[in-house]
Simulated assay, not measured.
Amino acid sequence: MRIAFFAPHKPIDHPLPSGDLIIGKTLHDFLKAQGHELLIASKFRLRHITNKPYKWPALYFEFKRTLKRVQQFKPDLWLTYHSYYKSPDLLGPYISEKLGIPYVIYQGVFATKYRRNYKTWPGYMANKHGLLHADHVFANKQKDFHNLARIVLSEKLSRTYAGIEPDKFSYCPQGAEEIRIKNKLNGRKVILSAAMLREDVKAKSITDLINAFAPLAAESPDAALLIAGDGEARLRLEKLAAEKAGDSIIFLGQVRREDLYKYYSAADIFAYPGINEALGMVYLEAQCAGLPIVAYSTQGPNEAVLPGKTGLLSQEGDIAALTENLNRLLDNDKLRGQMSKAGPKHVKDTFDLNKNLQEVEQKLISISSRRY
């Protein structure tokens, strides 16, 4: 297939890492590795475009350039990754119609609450237009699938799953030893967390985790919390951590994703509250390495974790419950061991990337064969 690929929210070569970016780039790279020809139709970022009229002239000229670029490429279909009210696809539906090719959205999102606010209504309507004109929509979250089913015909809607390559995050004893020696962790119970340290819900999640860990640090000097990630909130969080738990909390800075498996392997528990988390690839990676999860019972953790089987989830904002769940897993070797065995199986059964993307690929091939 020849595929025109577009990510309106954030180009897949954007320098700032995120879970959404990983999913989009993985989809693109998988299809390319399967022998399909892909064209990045545009790198124009449409985030909040409906509320930025000063960018509309630039969007008009980008539309013209993209139309010409895609015409020359002669694709079999247009594939948009992640369209929603903040970043509606204002190129794909119109260019696909002009060229007479199928229009497909992977990770479509729809929520009627955004039609009630005049600030979000334009983005809501633009996104709805794209969804209604799509030949097929993939939803990789149950909540999105349920909402999309209200406006997308069942034959045009598929529930799929994000995922990881399990072999890349399997437990590695050599990696575990390397990290434990490097950070002087031998003989200690290690809790690992990983997040971008932005001044938003990411920093709020880490703040809650620090506050939840503080009582454990006072009672169990052999417990350590490692935090992987960097961002503008790091200095503030380091100060808070020092005040609450002294040197029991270690900030690792940004860790390359390809090296994270060593840190997962060196830990006993993975903890990240996950406020407003969409899915959270780190939950999948950690479970694959055999780590029990401690998080809030918000959308992302609920999608990725089997409560009571591969992790312990608690109500958002309940710091005491976070502390209790961390303490329960630290003290209960048997429970930790059971979850350690269940985690990798859960990921392989539901979130095996190659298996899930092969299903997406077959659907795309079927759709492209029905080209107008």
Results as ranks from 00 to 15, higher is better:
Leu27Asn: 04
Asp29Phe: 01
Phe30Met: 03
Phe30Asp: 06
Leu31His: 08
Lys32Gln: 12
Gln34Phe: 02
Gln34Pro: 10
Gln34Arg: 15
His36Ser: 07
His36Ile: 10
Leu38Thr: 09
Leu39Tyr: 07
Leu39Ile: 13
Leu39Asp: 08
Ala41His: 02
Ala41Ile: 04
Lys43Asp: 15
Phe44Asn: 09
Leu46Gln: 11
Arg47Asp: 15
His48Ile: 12
His48Gln: 13
Ile49Phe: 04
Thr50Gln: 08
Asn51Asp: 13
Lys52His: 06
Pro53Cys: 03
Pro53His: 00
Pro53Asn: 00
Pro53Trp: 00
Pro53Ile: 03
Pro53Ala: 02
Tyr54Ile: 10
Pro57Val: 03
Ala58Phe: 13
Leu59His: 10
Leu59Glu: 09
Tyr60Cys: 11
Phe61Asn: 07
Phe61Pro: 06
Phe61Thr: 13
Glu62Phe: 04
Lys64Gln: 13
Lys64Val: 15
Lys64Asn: 12
Arg65Gly: 01
Arg65Tyr: 06
Leu67Ile: 07
Leu67Trp: 03
Leu67Met: 08
Val70Cys: 02
Val70His: 05
Gln71Met: 08
Phe73Asn: 11
Phe73Glu: 12
Lys74Pro: 03
Lys74Asp: 14
Asp76Ser: 11
Asp76Asn: 15
Asp76Lys: 01
Leu77Asp: 00
Thr80Ile: 05
Thr80Asp: 01
Tyr81Trp: 06
His82Trp: 14
His82Cys: 07
His82Asn: 12
Ser83Lys: 08
Tyr84Gly: 00
Tyr85His: 15
Ser87Ile: 09
Pro88Val: 05
Pro88Tyr: 07
Asp89Lys: 02
Asp89Thr: 02
Leu90Lys: 00
Leu91Lys: 06
Gly92Thr: 09
Pro93Lys: 00
Tyr94Ile: 04
Tyr94Gly: 00
Tyr94Phe: 14
Ser96Asn: 09
Ser96Pro: 14
Ser96Leu: 07
Glu97Arg: 12
Glu97Asp: 14
Glu97Val: 05
Lys98Gly: 05
Lys98Pro: 11
Lys98Asp: 13
Gly100Asp: 10
Gly100Ala: 09
Gly100Phe: 11
Ile101Pro: 09
Val104Tyr: 02
Val104Ala: 03
Val104Lys: 01
Ile105Pro: 05
Tyr106Gln: 01
Gln107Cys: 12
Gln107Pro: 04
Phe110Cys: 05
Phe110Tyr: 15
Ala111Arg: 08
Ala111Ser: 13
Tyr114Thr: 06
Tyr114Gly: 04
Arg115Leu: 15
Arg115Cys: 11
Arg115Pro: 01
Arg116Phe: 14
Asn117His: 08
Tyr118Gly: 06
Tyr118Thr: 12
Tyr118Cys: 10
Thr120Val: 00
Trp121Pro: 00
Trp121Glu: 12
Gly123Asp: 06
Tyr124Trp: 10
Met125Val: 13
Met125Trp: 13
Met125His: 07
Met125Glu: 14
Ala126Ser: 01
Ala126Asn: 00
Asn127Leu: 03
Asn127Tyr: 04
Lys128Asn: 02
His129Asp: 14
His129Asn: 12
Gly130Phe: 02
Leu131Gly: 09
Leu132Glu: 09
Leu132Asp: 01
His133Arg: 14
Ala134Tyr: 10
Ala134Phe: 09
His136Arg: 04
His136Ile: 07
Val137Ser: 02
Val137Tyr: 05
Phe138Pro: 07
Ala139Tyr: 09
Ala139Asn: 10
Ala139Ile: 11
